[in-house]
Amino acid sequence: MNTSKIEIKNLTVDYIEKKKSFTALKNVSFPVNEGEFVSIIGASGCGKSTLLSVLEGINKPAEGEVLIDGERVNGTGSNRSVVFQHYSLFPWMTTRKNVAFGIQQVRKELSRTQRLQIADEFLDKVGLSEFKNKYPSRLSGGMQQRAAIARALAMDTEILLMDEPFSALDAKNRIALQELLLKLWEGENSENKKTVVFVTHDIDEAIFLSDKIVVLTSHPGTVYDIVEVPFERPRNREKLIERKDYAALRSKLLSMFYHDIADRIGGNEVVI
């Protein structure tokens, strides 16, 4: 099935900061298919998080629209769950309560016991069973992100939006969480995999995780290119990085990155 789950159409988003308005995104369009893992990459300040906030329903576009299942996004909705870089969890709820609270918002029909049972199940999947009664302040950054992922998956929404979820983690934790995310996402019933939109500035992360990578340029953010990632799943990081086509894809994406930066700081006058 290759229908468009999310359709981003001619999106222009303005940002107001200190009473000055500037354009964060200009005329951005691309589709996200059902069950697809799409990464959005770009240098910091290119508006990739702004784009995600429109998908979340927190931010409203100046022009254009986002369609989910053909319907215009107008605010937040129970078909999406989100993992942020920080502060996804509420510090006054235990890890378990945080997950259960998320479930409660989308599935009101469940009893408290059922919610806690699902929460425990997902905390177990991300390896946090022992920490379920701890408050987020007692967890490491990596554990907090695990818990946030557990909540997002436990909410069982069709769409998963992730805003640089691993950027604040050290390299070891980042890799561990990328693998965990893929395992959980691929491990699901392949017929109805979640549609994932993942924002990152890490090229290797984007290649390892995605089916498709949207490269944004900066000031204002526009789509530079959309690159398919052809590698079969399940993916193995060690084998992947030895492949020639991986290196080719990586250098292609890198050149897009630097191209953009060179353009911004003065084109051919700059020698890098």
């Binding site: 979340e56 509420f90 918002q105």
Partner: peptide, 25 residues
Amino acid sequence: KKIIDSAKVLNVKKPAMLTSIILPA
């Protein structure tokens, strides 16, 4: 604001927003 956004994307409704998010925060 990040806490509020985090609650908004969870679709927390007004009464719960007040008692479960704003009050403890």
